[in-house]
């Protein structure tokens, strides 16, 4: 097979295998040791769960205990999109007209996916689900629409799109700063308000994650790609216009 680097010699390959089996054995040993260590943070999370405003421990960790992680994660998404946009200038996918099956399917599936995303977002407070899952379902809807040939209209691909893309990170920081102003610590919600604040942040995060993933799939900055004629980027929450 010529799929590997032809410059890689056989001796080198054996050396790599030897080193990697050493790494693998060492990792397996670490797993064995760690799997016997005492309990992690599960009990502490369970003990504090009633102050978080949500009933799902994973959502509580993501949005409350480790809010910083999620905040920075939104920043990573935004930076990745900025990187893709600044590298832009790729040709758009070829606009072969989608067949009737894909066209109909996208019209039926996209609203359902948006509904599933809303359900996941809402149910995430007390059951498996949440902003990330909902956002990725929304992103999948965006990808499906783009594959079927839909592109975001000009009136949506300007300021409105950018506001959606930044709202997750922006609202997160605004809430954190607001809590600082009323005398709390950054992202340390008062228990009475926690549920509402988390839902607010999660809603914005869902929209941002969905829009960012869909934009990452397209790869071009809307309206500024090499082909000026294409209004680009689908974002499933607003009315799309067929090209």
């Amino acid at each position: 097979m010529s799929i590997t680097n032809p410059a890689t010699g056989k001796a080198f390959r054996w050396l790599v295998m030897l080193l990697l089996s050493a790494i693998g054995g060492w990792l397996a040993y670490v797993m064995l040791v760690l799997s016997r260590s005492p309990a992690g943070l599960g009990d502490q999370v369970a003990a504090q769960l009633n102050t978080t405003g949500v009933g799902n421990p994973v959502t509580a960790v993501l949005l409350n205990f480790r809010g910083y992680d999620t905040l920075l994660e939104m920043a990573v998404l935004l930076i990745a999109l900025l990187g893709v946009w600044s590298l832009g200038g790729l040709a758009d996918y070829q606009d072969t007209a989608p067949g009737p099956t894909l066209d109909t399917l996208s019209r039926v599936l996209a609203p359902m996916l948006i509904m599933v995303a809303a359900y996941l977002l809402w149910v995430g407070a007390d059951a498996p689900g949440g902003a990330f899952q909902a956002g990725s379902v929304l992103g999948a809807a965006g990808v499906l629409l783009q594959l079927a040939g839909w592109r975001l209209g000009d009136c949506f691909s300007g300021m409105l799109l950018r506001v959606v893309l930044i709202s997750g990170l922006g609202l997160f920081i605004l809430v954190g700063a607001g809590l600082l102003l009323i005398g709390g610590a950054f992202l340390q919600y008062p228990p009475a308000l926690a549920g509402g604040l988390i839902l607010l942040i999660e809603t914005a995060a869902t929209l941002t994650i969905g829009a960012t993933l869909a934009a990452l799939f397209l790869g071009n900055r809307p309206g500024l790609g090499p082909k000026k004629a294409d209004p680009e980027k689908t974002e499933p929450d607003h009315g799309n216009q067929h090209p």
């Binding site: 799902n56 994973v58 959502t59 996941l120 498996p128 689900g129 949440g130 990330f132 899952q133 990725s136 379902v137 992103g139 999948a140 990808v143 594959l147 993933l213 799939f217």
Partner: peptide, 16 residues
Amino acid sequence: DVALAEAAIGAGLTGA
């Protein structure tokens, strides 16, 4: 929770 995220992203978006 992880399964939901993986099903949407790992099996769908990354492949796309």
